[in-house]
C-alpha cells in the first residue's frame, strides 16, 4: 500500500482540527478576559461614585465624570507621577548606557580574565535585594542620599545592570567583528566605535532593554517604600499605598489614581510590544 501525501484529510481529521483550534482560541480569549477585565473594571470604577461602586460593582458607570481623576491628580498623584518619571527615565538611561559599555568591553576588547569578569558581573543576577536592604539603608543615610530620587536611581541602576548587560552582551556577540575592525582601520577610537558603530547596531536590544527597565522601575515597590518617605520623592506604587491609607473609604478616587498610574505603562507596552517580546527572546536565545 502506498501512502499519498496529496490525499485530502478525512472528515474526522477536519472535525478534530476544528475542535482543537476552537479550544485554543477559547483558552486565549479567557486568558485575555482574565488579564484585561480587572484593568477595565478599575478604570470604569474611577468614573463611578462610591455608592455606585458598592451597589452595582459590575455595572457601567452612570456618568463619565472626570471628578475622581482630577481629585486624585490633585491629592498627590501628580507628584508621584513626576517622581516615577524622573526615577524611571534617569535609571533607564544610566542602566542601559553602563550596561552597553560594559557589554562592549566584555565582547570587543582583549582584556585579561574576561570570563571571570563576565561571571562576576552576571553574578549580580543572583543577589537578592532583600538581603542587601539594611547595609544599603545605612550607606544611603551616610552619603546623604536617603529619601531622595538619587537613592532609587542608584539602586535601580545597580540592581538592573547585570540583567541588562546579559541581554546586550548576548546581542553584541552576534555582531560581526569585521565592523569594529573596519572602524579601527578608519581611525576610530574605542569610544567612537561604541557610539558610532556598536550602539546604533544594537538599537533593537537597547529599545528592548529600556522597555524592560521601565516596566521594572515603574512598578518597583520594596526599595521605593524603604528608601523614600516624603510625599514629593515617593513614586507611584508607594504613593498609591499612602493614598489608600489616607483616603481608604474613597474607593472611587483610589481607583482613579490607580488607573492614572497604570495608564502610561499599559500604553507603552502596547506601543512597543514588538520590541518587548523580541528583547525577551533575544536575551534567552542568543
Amino acid at each position: 500500500m502506498t501512502v499519498g501525501t496529496g490525499n485530502p484529510p478525512s472528515e474526522s481529521a477536519l472535525f478534530w482540527t476544528a475542535i482543537s483550534k476552537s479550544f485554543v482560541y477559547s483558552l486565549l480569549v479567557c486568558l485575555g478576559v482574565i488579564v484585561l477585565y480587572p484593568l477595565l473594571w478599575m478604570a470604569a470604577s474611577g468614573f463611578k461614585t462610591n455608592t455606585q461602586i458598592f451597589n452595582a460593582p459590575f455595572a457601567i458607570p452612570l456618568s463619565w465624570s472626570l471628578e475622581n481623576y482630577i481629585g486624585a491628580w490633585n491629592e498627590g498623584v501628580r507628584s508621584f507621577l513626576v517622581s516615577s518619571l524622573i526615577v524611571t527615565a534617569t535609571s533607564a538611561f544610566c542602566t542601559v548606557m553602563i550596561s552597553a559599555w560594559t557589554a562592549y568591553g566584555l565582547t570587543r576588547t582583549r582584556m585579561p580574565c574576561k570570563p571571570l569578569i563576565t561571571g562576576f558581573i552576571l553574578g549580580g543576577l543572583m543577589l537578592s535585594p532583600t538581603v542587601a536592604l539594611i547595609p544599603l539603608v545605612r550607606m544611603m543615610q551616610s552619603v546623604g542620599l536617603y529619601n531622595t530620587h538619587w537613592a532609587l536611581i542608584l539602586l535601580y541602576t545597580a540592581f538592573r545592570i547585570p540583567f541588562t548587560t546579559f541581554l546586550i552582551r548576548a546581542y553584541m556577540l552576534e555582531l560581526p567583528s569585521d565592523l569594529d575592525e573596519a572602524a579601527r582601520m578608519d581611525g576610530a577610537t574605542e569610544g567612537q566605535i561604541f557610539w558610532h558603530i556598536m550602539l546604533p547596531l544594537c538599537r533593537p536590544i537597547i529599545v528592548s532593554s529600556v522597555i524592560l527597565h521601565i516596566l521594572f522601575a515603574w512598578n518597583e515597590y520594596l526599595f521605593a517604600m524603604i528608601f523614600t518617605n516624603a510625599q514629593e520623592v515617593q513614586t507611584l506604587p508607594v504613593g498609591l499605598t499612602s493614598l489608600m491609607a489616607k483616603h481608604g473609604t474613597d474607593y472611587a478616587q483610589v481607583f482613579a489614581a490607580m488607573t492614572i498610574s497604570a495608564l502610561p505603562i499599559v500604553l507603552l507596552f502596547f506601543a512597543m510590544q514588538r520590541y518587548f517580546v523580541r528583547g525577551l527572546t533575544e536575551g534567552i536565545g542568543k
Binding site: P176, L179, A182, A183, I197, L201
Partner: peptide, 9 residues
C-alpha cells in the same frame, strides 16, 4: 574585508 564590513546603518 572579505565580508565588506560596511556599516549597515
Amino acid at each position: 574585508f572579505q565580508s565588506y564590513a560596511l556599516y549597515p546603518h
